[in-house]
Computed example of a mutant assay.
Amino acid sequence: MSTNKPLLKVDNAGIRFGGLKAVSEVNLELLKGELVGLIGPNGAGKTTFFNLLTGVYVPTEGSILLDGEKLNGMAPHKITKKGISRTFQNIRLFNDLSVLDNVKIAYHTQAKHSIVSSILRLPSHFAGEREMEEKAIDFLKIFNLDDVLYEQAKNLPYGQQRRLEIARALAAGPKLLLLDEPAAGMNPQETEELMNLIALIREKFDLTILLIEHDMNLVMGVCERIYVLDHGQLIAQGTPVEIRNNPKVIEAYLGEEVS
């Protein structure tokens, strides 16, 4: 599934806020088609690292490349167009819009009709809108959300809101999907359903996925490789078995040295 050339290459990347190093000297590679975990204790710098990848923060050191193209300093919306989409630890939806409209908004990043045609309400505008709506409805069927198309997002149960957020991120047509604690707040059944969904979308959309998660059963169950951050620095990487038995990782989580 993967090739030798990394889709994402992070080379000694980091960021300072004043004199504080929030993330420092991170080296990370993702090959096309991989599903990789990023774990670490609270405050380890995981979400800050996601913010570097998506242009919310600009690295003060190192470089970030997607398909060989440097992303440093690129605006978030341009990074989205280049092929990186993300979800958030705290779900961010357009709460007062329908499920369908939340996904249609994401499809607008791929719209073929021009701004001029939209302003002038030309036939190409209406044809483009119909096409996006049909695509969005078909897309939402994959996530079992086609029976709530016209519900406001805020009225959905928590598990469905999380699925909608993932669906919206995928509708932008990414090469790389970043999932920031997708199982947060979920019960065991919802978490198991999420594991199955992640495996499905990876296979169906030929995606590369980087996953931040505190639920170790989920991480160990779906990820091929895992990186571990602590105090803004990578302390380990390897397979789930290697990470589970790594003394540095155990020490970071338990706060005590392992003999």
Rank of each mutant, 00 (worst) to 15 (best):
N102A: 03
V56W: 12
T208S: 11
L66R: 05
N245K: 13
N144C: 04
I226Q: 12
P123I: 04
K112T: 07
E193T: 02
G40I: 10
L179G: 11
A184K: 05
I137S: 01
E34D: 13
V56P: 11
A199W: 01
G232E: 05
G73V: 15
T3Y: 02
P6C: 04
Y227N: 00
L149V: 03
D67L: 05
A171P: 09
F94E: 11
L200A: 10
E61W: 00
F49V: 02
T109W: 10
V219K: 04
E165M: 01
N12F: 11
K78G: 00
I209K: 14
I137L: 01
E34P: 08
H214D: 06
H125K: 11
I226K: 12
F88Y: 12
L176K: 15
I64D: 03
V148D: 07
V222P: 11
F50T: 00
V23K: 07
N4V: 12
I64M: 06
K46F: 07
V249Y: 14
N51I: 06
F17L: 13
G19V: 06
I226T: 10
Q152H: 02
D206Y: 01
I250P: 06
L164I: 02
G19R: 07
N217D: 14
P247Q: 08
R130C: 02
A153E: 08
K70D: 12
I198K: 05
A127Y: 00
S117G: 00
N102P: 04
V228E: 08
E134G: 02
E192M: 06
A183S: 15
F143Y: 04
H77L: 02
N4K: 14
L66Y: 02
A252H: 12
Q237S: 10
E251G: 15
N4A: 15
A171G: 13
G232V: 06
R163E: 09
K70H: 11
D147P: 00
N27F: 09
A236H: 10
N144H: 09
R168C: 01
R244F: 00
I119K: 03
F94P: 14
L254M: 13
L197T: 04
V23I: 12
E61M: 03
M216L: 04
Q110W: 00
D206C: 04
L140G: 06
R121D: 08
R130E: 00
K70N: 14
C223G: 08
